[in-house]
Amino acid sequence: MGKVLSFGELLLRICPDEAGQWLQENSLPFYVGGAEANVATALALWGIPSAYLTALPDNFVSEQLVGYLNSRQVQTDQIVYQGDRVGLYYLPKGKDLKNAGVIYDRAGSAYADLKPGTIDWEKAFEDVSWFHFSAICPAINQSVADVCEEALQVAVQKKITVSLDLNYRAKLWKYGKDPLEVMPALAQYCDLIMGNIWAANKMLGIPLDENLIANLNKASLQQHAARTSKAILEKFPKCRTVANTFRFDFRQGIRYFTTLFEAGNLYTSHEYQVAQILDKVGSGDCFMAGLIYGYYNQLPPAETVEFATAAAFRKLFIPSDATTSTVAEINDTTLAHAN
């Protein structure tokens, strides 16, 4: 097996507290982020050869960011250096990226200014057996969407496995295109599609039965997950695996489980429930990385979905964008909840 190449925008997440205490302290917490970077660092931590491709300005901040990725054992030799800006986003502590309070400051970044033809994909895919990207990339602008398709065409020619995370970010789709006008054309190249039944509806046009899932009953959600997965496989014949995550916030805490559909079978993870968490950001990225880890190591589907779910659940207690949980710690979580 070759390395896993993740492609997306490297971001800085700035976390002002909602009370405004940061103004008194002259201090703003921040984390290195970006959905695909979170996947890349998780895989490297878990012993998978991991590379990351993005675009950054050629300055000392980028040099330090790349040094950070290298210290996490992520290969960065294919990064494109151009432009003047690193993308930013602001998110109050403890909130997730679907929160209305998220503020994106990404226009004119080095990554947002990528154009088709800039990246030598033949070179970028040397020794690569898996390519990962997310729906955040084509949400930025049409040009980046075109770069994604350019990459996917080469990846398929080289018989590289392709995974897609259907991250939906309403605040990013602002360039005149609806996700349904962009995402299906990209999804047709993918072997593994991960998201949830709502994102599949919004981005791929997969039917959603609101009545079936109105009470968020687990059995009904599983039924819909199977239905959505079959519809995706039918619409996109290259796809062979579909994963869905279900995370709900209640007064009494968080409820979280996932499903994996492959070869006509639906695998459902253990359901986790907990009263309090620390950080919602990056949990889905951690789940995606867990799926890649499982398939890369040829684990059975049931084992893969349990590992990925445990990894995602543990990320809820880590105050950063990327996970720091080891394979041993994740396996311990899986075993603890299996008993």
Rank of each mutant, 00 (worst) to 15 (best):
L28P: 03
P301V: 12
F236I: 02
F250Q: 13
W173A: 12
P92Y: 14
P16C: 07
V128A: 08
V327M: 09
I213S: 09
M288L: 10
S109A: 01
A100I: 14
F257M: 10
A263P: 08
L10V: 02
G264A: 06
F250D: 03
H224S: 11
L10M: 07
A51Q: 09
K202N: 05
D321R: 03
Q223R: 07
W22T: 09
I318Q: 15
V327Y: 07
W173E: 11
L299Y: 05
V74F: 08
L164Q: 07
V74C: 08
I103M: 15
A214Y: 06
T118F: 08
I318H: 15
Q273C: 03
I160Q: 09
N141G: 09
Q82G: 06
S163Y: 01
I330M: 04
S283E: 05
A139N: 01
Q24N: 11
T333N: 07
L221E: 12
A40I: 01
H224Q: 09
Y175H: 05
I119H: 03
G176Y: 06
A135Q: 05
D113I: 01
F125S: 04
V156D: 02
L212F: 08
V4C: 10
I277C: 12
Q64V: 10
N26P: 00
A336W: 02
I254Q: 03
D249E: 15
E210T: 11
A263S: 15
D146Y: 00
L53R: 01
L204A: 08
T41D: 00
V281C: 07
S50K: 08
G284F: 10
Q75D: 10
L56K: 12
W46A: 04
G290A: 06
I79T: 07
L172K: 02
P301F: 13
E36Y: 00
L43Y: 05
Q64P: 00
S62G: 08
G282F: 06
D178C: 09
G117L: 14
C190T: 15
Y189D: 13
T54H: 05
I292H: 02
E306D: 12
K238A: 05
N339K: 07
G94M: 04
K218I: 11
N201G: 15
T228K: 05
E150N: 03
D96V: 12
E149R: 13
I330P: 04
A42Y: 00
L91T: 11
T326R: 00
D120P: 02
Q153G: 02
L91Q: 12
S50V: 11
E306Q: 14
D127I: 01
N339G: 03
E210D: 12
Q73K: 12
V156A: 01
V39N: 00
G282M: 06
I48L: 05
G33F: 01
A289S: 03
I277A: 13
F131R: 05
A226N: 06
N331H: 15
M203P: 13
Y81F: 15
